[in-house]
Simulated scan of single mutants.
Amino acid sequence: MIVRIMGEGQVKLDDSHFAELNKLDDELLAEVEGGDEEGFRRTLGALLDAVRRLGSPLPADALEPSELILPAPDASLDEVRGMLTDDGLIPG
């Protein structure tokens, strides 16, 4: 799966990593819904770090269709709230 982190670029992730990412996504969803700014910052950072650590960056000039778009590291709680679905940022 190709994942785009807004403002950074694209990363190719193996589907086997989505259980770990979904756990962080569930935490992030709860923090956004509860208005927990500190928890939100911590978990968003952990989610993006996990994507970077587990994935392989695509070249800057690659223009692959992204199957998942994640917010930039400096996104606000309200910006991320607008990106959320019932499943969070990551479907499933």
Rank of each mutant, 00 (worst) to 15 (best):
L68Y: 04
L29F: 02
G9R: 10
E38K: 06
M1A: 09
G7K: 00
D74L: 05
S76D: 13
E64C: 11
D26H: 07
D25L: 05
L21T: 05
M83W: 09
P71F: 01
L63H: 13
T43P: 00
T43I: 04
L44M: 09
G7I: 10
L70N: 03
G34N: 14
S16N: 13
A72F: 01
D87G: 03
R41W: 03
M1L: 12
L28F: 01
E31N: 15
M83H: 11
L44E: 03
S76K: 11
L70P: 06
R41N: 07
Q10L: 05
L70A: 02
R42C: 00
L70Y: 00
R4C: 09
T43R: 02
L24Q: 08
A72D: 12
P65R: 06
G82S: 12
A62C: 10
L84P: 15
D26M: 12
P59Y: 05
A30I: 10
R52V: 06
D14N: 14
L21R: 03
L24E: 10
M83A: 07
D87L: 13
F18W: 09
G92W: 04
R4S: 13
A30R: 09
V3P: 01
L68A: 11
G92L: 08
G39C: 10
V80K: 01
V3E: 01
A50K: 02
L68I: 15
L29W: 00
R4Q: 15
E64Q: 15
L48T: 01
L47R: 08
V51E: 08
